[in-house]
Each structure stands twice: as structure tokens, then as C-alpha cells.
């Protein structure tokens, strides 16, 4: 019995020392923690000794952790610089790792600070997916989507949508979307439709991202509406533009907030409406802002 108590005491001493040390000497030089030792997928494949799929799972978990850690950790500048190499390793070790491609497509192309803002990497990853599974319409769809949403290139997007529609099992809405791309490149209806498709996918990660994009689209509609209200009022003489001015004129009842709950900003000089920098919806996608 004495031995059990002594053992517990020693363990408690160990934990105390651990806590003290972690306080006194914060561990891990950030540069060291963020190293990815082997970047070549071929080398990792050899090192994995036939446990490729398992290694792929581990890299996938690291990718998620890396992304999530950078996104949630407010203390350090977010960099996401390992996201692409990690996803590249994951998909090289297991070329059928479906979610890794789709995750990469959505998040690699997302603009900073929500992501690294590298649509080129997203497209490269998806092209790799197509070379592994050329019949998978989702990859064509995702490439088209990156071209449409992030690269603002509806013509190329339409081409990829059409190629996706040619694959077996492709849903019948792909072809109309391709057509809509060509005729009315920058409308929000197509964007909303596409995001709805993504939101209804069974991946919670993607669902959250789609939810976010749909709110951004709602915000864009709100801004159009608010811009119209600002334009409809007579320009104040000595006064800068402000929400209180509009409320006083009874054009608005309260200060308007965006779908994430943050108040919109009204530029005092130009009268332009935008989402606040502090809003989770910032920055809004560029494509859908109407050209004025």
C-alpha cells in the first residue's frame, strides 16, 4: 500500500515538474514545429513501407490540424504554408482519398486569412485527382468552381462544368450551370446554386464552408440593397455619410447588420457600403460585386 501511495506521489511530482517546465521554458521553436521533414511523396511512399494508406491518413490528420490550428490560433500570423504539401502527400499516398481533394479545392483557394489563397494549388491537386480517377465528375465540378469563384474566369469554368457533365453519374444540373456560366458569368444565382449543392454534400467541413459562402452572398445582396437606399437619398451637404444620417431621414430604422451579425460599414466620404473588417464574412468574394 505504501508503494502505491509513493508511486502516486512520484507521478504527482512528475506532473508538477512538467507543468513548471512548460511554464518556464515554452517548448518548440515555432520554426521547428512547422517543419515538414520529407516533402517528396515518392520518398514518403518508400518510408511508409507498404502502409501507404495509413500514412495517408496520418498526413490527412496533420493537414486538418495544420489548417484548423492556423485558423483558430489567433496568437501567431496564419500562414497555412504546409497545407498544400500535406494534402499533396496525402493524395499521393492514397490517390483515392476523395475528401482530401475536395477539401483542398475549397480551402486552398480560399483567400487569406481564411486560407492560403492559392487557387493554382487547388487546381493542381484536383488535376491529380482526375488523373487517378478520370470518371469522377466531382473533380471537374470542383475545378470549374475554383475557376469561377476564385479565379473569376467563367469561360474556363464553363468548360470544366461541361467536361464534368460528360462523366457517367454526373447530375443533370451540371450542364445548365455550364450554360449559365457562359451567358451570365457573374450572377449570384449560379453561385448560390453551386454553394447549395456543396452545402448538401455529406461532409461537415464543406457544409460549414458553404454556409459561410452563402452568407457572404446574402451580404452582397444586402449591400446592393443598401447602396440603392444610399443613392436614393439626397446627398448631405456638410455632413459625411453615416448610418445615423440615414436613420434620421427614416430611410432605415436601425443600423443594418450583416448575416454574421456585424454592422455594415458606410464609407463616410464615398457613401459605399461594405462589410466590416472585423466581420467573419470579411473579405467578400470579389467576383460578385457589381461593377459600377
Amino acid at each position: 500500500m505504501i508503494k502505491v501511495l509513493a508511486a502516486c506521489g512520484c507521478l504527482a511530482a512528475a506532473v508538477t515538474l512538467q507543468v513548471w517546465r512548460d511554464g518556464a521554458f515554452p517548448r518548440r521553436h515555432p520554426d521547428i514545429a512547422r517543419l515538414l521533414y520529407v516533402r517528396s511523396p515518392a520518398a514518403v511512399g518508400r518510408l511508409a513501407l507498404g502502409f501507404d494508406a495509413l500514412a495517408a491518413d496520418l498526413y490527412w490528420i496533420r493537414a486538418i490540424q495544420h489548417y484548423g490550428g492556423d485558423r483558430l490560433n489567433r496568437d501567431q500570423p496564419r500562414r497555412y504554408e504546409l497545407l498544400y504539401p500535406l494534402l499533396d502527400l496525402t493524395t499521393s499516398l492514397d490517390p483515392y482519398f476523395n475528401i482530401a481533394y475536395r477539401f483542398g479545392a475549397i480551402f486552398l483557394s480560399e483567400a487569406y486569412p481564411g486560407g492560403p489563397g492559392r487557387p493554382d494549388h487547388a487546381v493542381a491537386l484536383l488535376r491529380k485527382g482526375i488523373s487517378a480517377q478520370p470518371r469522377k465528375w466531382q473533380y471537374y465540378h470542383d475545378i470549374a468552381f475554383v475557376h469561377y469563384w476564385s479565379l473569376r474566369d467563367p469561360v474556363t469554368a464553363a468548360g470544366w462544368f461541361r467536361r464534368g457533365a460528360e462523366q457517367p453519374d454526373a447530375p443533370n444540373w451540371l450542364m445548365p450551370v455550364a450554360a449559365a456560366m457562359l451567358t451570365q458569368g457573374s450572377d449570384r444565382v449560379s453561385a448560390r446554386f453551386l454553394w447549395h449543392q456543396i452545402r448538401d454534400a455529406d461532409q461537415p467541413w464543406l457544409r460549414g464552408r458553404a454556409q459561410h459562402a452563402l452568407r457572404q452572398l446574402d451580404a452582397l445582396d444586402d449591400i446592393d440593397h443598401l447602396d440603392a437606399i444610399v443613392a436614393s437619398q439626397p446627398r448631405p451637404a456638410e455632413e459625411p455619410f453615416s448610418w445615423s444620417w440615414l436613420v434620421r431621414l427614416r430611410a432605415l430604422r436601425v443600423v443594418p447588420v450583416d448575416p454574421a451579425g456585424a454592422p455594415y460599414e458606410l464609407d463616410p466620404a464615398t457613401g459605399r457600403v461594405t462589410v466590416a473588417k472585423a466581420s467573419p464574412l470579411f473579405p467578400l468574394p470579389q467576383l460578385m460585386v457589381p461593377i459600377r
Partner: peptide, 28 residues
């Protein structure tokens, strides 16, 4: 990169305490 002497000794002491706990449990 530098490794502080304090880090070295506190980690070694941590190891010693943990080892003692394991050995006592093993003996028991």
C-alpha cells in the same frame, strides 16, 4: 539553437520522478 540548462535539468528530474513511479508500481 540554445537549450537552457534549466530545461535540461527539469526534464531529467521529470524523467526521474516518472521512472520512480513506474518502478514502485512494478514492485507493488
Amino acid at each position: 539553437f540554445p537549450v537552457a540548462a534549466g530545461y535540461l535539468w527539469s526534464t531529467a528530474a521529470y524523467g526521474a520522478a516518472y521512472i520512480a513511479a513506474l518502478l514502485l508500481a512494478a514492485m507493488y
